[in-house]
Design a protein around this nucleic acid. Structure first.
Lengths: 206, 206
DNA sequence: CCTACCGATCGGTAGG
DNA sequence: CCTACCGATCGGTAGG
């Protein structure tokens, strides 16, 4: 059985060194996957950035594919820890969408990773294809549930709003603005764009 | 001087064969660039799909980079021939955005190409980086000009709409929905999403 | 976690 | 527009 998170097993110096090394590799991989995508990224370049040999990377992550999934899962864990996109209060969820856009606007590497790899993963043979199909199902469902909550509370500008369409539009605005933000840095206001979109749909403060 | 387009120089059988061969190569390249991106696409695989040797591809397009730009330019020429995104009538321009989304919804290969390569090209070292930076400047400007026209004619829901933000949002909705459409085919209504977005902004029929 | 290595594949060139 | 070839680079393995 795993140790409780409030009384973790003490981490020895060896385990700590391994964990830090893995973090360094994940940092380098996130960076390169974002720059050139998964397929064009080489383990040797990731290894060089992590200051390790390329079989050293494979010692920690058995395959390049496993490394990509580890990068994505680490990021997911980080986001679900800091944001609550599963709350039952729709207003909270929508505010968290804006807050997440705001955080992303200060983390170009993460935005590059998601924009580049999600696009690459539209191909069914891509190793992260299933991951992104599931991810978008979850995110769109979360947006739809939030909007339905607002609809029930009379907080929508148009009470007959097409919730499926609107949920996908909200997610689309976030993704599309991120792409433009990468192409035209300094000219795109990520969080403002999402906020403006939400204000047009709901009579809430975001 | 080039021959007038209404009285073209007669095309000999040799020139015709060359043109058709180039079209075949461009078709194969569009397909593979869309599937795996520019960097991961190989000239050998493109050549195989065009049923030619890979030096044969290079005979027609000197480098892989030149081939990518030729694919994008052919597509641009096709779109600017069939749609008028530079009209001075804002309503026409916005209707053409919807019509273009509708056409794209029947051409998965083209959507894959733009979603995948535009994301990949956010990297400044990508051969199509400048192309996409310019392209988005043009498209966003076109949307902004159209919205400004509507504003002047009192056709906006919110007369104080932030035009820069709204123009980028419109383009973002189109791009974001295309990504979702590739990930969740059959569940995303591309043209409907763009139409719904426009109806929320302007009091026009689209 | 390193060095040395494997077979496969890459973009592009030479020569015809 | 083909065949044959070049040097470079790839993901992953063997052995320590």
């Amino acid at each position: 059985m795993a140790s409780r998170s409030d009384t973790p097993t003490p981490e020895g110096p060896r385990a700590r060194a391994t964990r830090l090394r893995r973090e360094t590799i994940l940092d380098a991989a996130l960076e390169l996957f974002g720059e050139v995508g998964f397929r064009a990224a080489s383990l040797r370049e990731i290894a060089a950035r992590a200051e390790i040999s390329h079989p050293g990377v494979i010692y920690h992550f058995a395959t390049k594919e496993e490394l990509l999934l580890a990068v994505l899962e680490r990021r997911d864990a980080d986001v679900s820890e800091r944001f609550h996109l599963e709350s039952s209060d729709g207003v909270t969820v929508l505010r968290n969408f804006v807050a997440l856009a705001d955080v992303n606007a200060h983390n170009r590497l993460v935005v590059e990773l998601y924009v580049t790899v999600s696009a690459e993963a539209t191909d069914p043979s891509h190793p992260a294809h299933d991951y992104f199909v599931d991810r978008y199902t979850r995110v769109v469902t979360s947006a739809r549930t939030a909007l339905a909550d607002l609809q029930g509370r009379g907080l929508l500008v148009d009470p007959d709003l097409d919730l499926d369409l609107a949920a996908r539009e909200l997610v689309a605005v976030i993704d599309g603005l991120q792409l433009q933000w990468l192409l035209h840095p300094g000219q795109v206001r990520l969080a403002d764009g999402v906020r403006a979109h939400l204000r047009r749909i709901a009579t809430i403060d975001v």
